[in-house]
Simulated assay, not measured.
Amino acid sequence: MPGYKLFITQDPGAPYANVDDVTIGGHVVGSAWHHILPKGDFRHDGGANLAAGLASLWNTMILKNNDARIAKPVLDAIIRRIGDYGTNLTAVDIEQAKTVAKDLRDGKITHPGSGTPDGWDSFIQVYIWLPGNLFRGPRNRADDPKNGFDTPAQLILPQKDQYNLLYDAYGEITAYLGNPSKTGYAQTAFTKLGKVADTYRTRTEFSAAQWTWDSGKNAPKVKGSK
């Protein structure tokens, strides 16, 4: 079995088209795709105090458990649904990403080694930017959680179960990072992420009715958030 470097070392960038400005309370501002469950840290040194998120979960799994098959639920979902995600990946990119996911799921490629498999960049783009974990909103939010869980998203997402799956996955990731020998935490996190990746295949678009302008902070925020 070929060996590769299977860490996610940097944000690969969103595989989606650029987004337009939005208007909130008469203010025109740039917009972006916001992660609900954050990307986390792209460190892979096993150090303490990793921010909980998708990259932290993946890299800790590879470093501590050296078995990507733990991520089978989300790998299966990506294999089945990647074509539904509305990415700007080419047909070749999509097929290569599916092959990477299949090979990881089946233990056909392993860590450690040198280089990365063909399609790795496309695969990690989809994993880090799962559409069911995204909503479009203004930049420079007054209520932006930075690298924390985006709790105001519960006021944005149309489906409560979508938010609950992501919130529960975040809790499992946090527990796993605190005790990586407990692979059950990682398995549960990937199971919940797999349900998100399988069920919620579109990004949540911007709705002006869900946003307001915080005059005290001179910035936009989700209507109803603190």
Rank of each mutant, 00 (worst) to 15 (best):
Y163W: 07
R139K: 15
T212R: 12
G47R: 12
G113Q: 08
P138A: 15
I128Y: 09
V19A: 11
Y200D: 01
P138M: 02
L177K: 09
I156R: 06
A142N: 08
D20T: 09
D161H: 13
A169Y: 02
N65V: 05
G184P: 10
H44S: 14
N179K: 13
L134S: 05
G107Y: 04
K5V: 13
Q10Y: 13
G13V: 04
S122M: 03
Q159Y: 14
V28G: 09
L75H: 01
P112V: 07
R69I: 04
G40I: 01
P152K: 09
T9D: 14
L37N: 04
Q125S: 12
N133T: 08
D150F: 10
D76R: 15
A97T: 03
R43T: 15
S56K: 07
G148D: 05
K39G: 12
V29W: 06
R203L: 04
G119K: 04
R80N: 15
T204W: 02
P12H: 00
N66E: 13
T87Q: 02
M61W: 04
S225I: 02
D161P: 08
Y4R: 13
R80V: 08
S56Q: 02
T212Q: 11
L134K: 05
P138W: 07
W211T: 01
S207I: 06
A14V: 06
N133M: 00
T99R: 14
H27M: 07
A14R: 11
K192C: 03
A208C: 11
D93L: 00
G86S: 03
I8N: 09
W120E: 08
G119R: 00
K160N: 14
K217S: 13
G30L: 12
L165N: 08
L104S: 01
F206M: 09
H44W: 02
T90L: 08
H111W: 04
G224L: 09
Y185L: 11
D93N: 07
A186D: 03
V126A: 10
R43F: 12
S31Q: 09
F123N: 00
G46P: 01
I24V: 12
P2V: 08
I156F: 00
S215P: 11
A197P: 06
Q96C: 12
D84F: 07
Y163C: 05
L193N: 04
Q187C: 08
G47V: 05
D103A: 10
K195R: 15
I8T: 02
N65R: 13
A71L: 03
Y163Q: 10
V22Q: 01
P220R: 04
L165S: 03
G115N: 06
R139F: 01
Y200G: 00
L89D: 06
F190P: 03
G148L: 05
L165M: 11
P145H: 04
V22H: 04
L157R: 02
L6G: 02
E172M: 08
G184S: 14
F42H: 14
R136L: 05
V126K: 06
N147C: 12
P158C: 11
V74D: 05
I70E: 09
K192H: 09
K39L: 14
T202W: 10
A55Y: 01
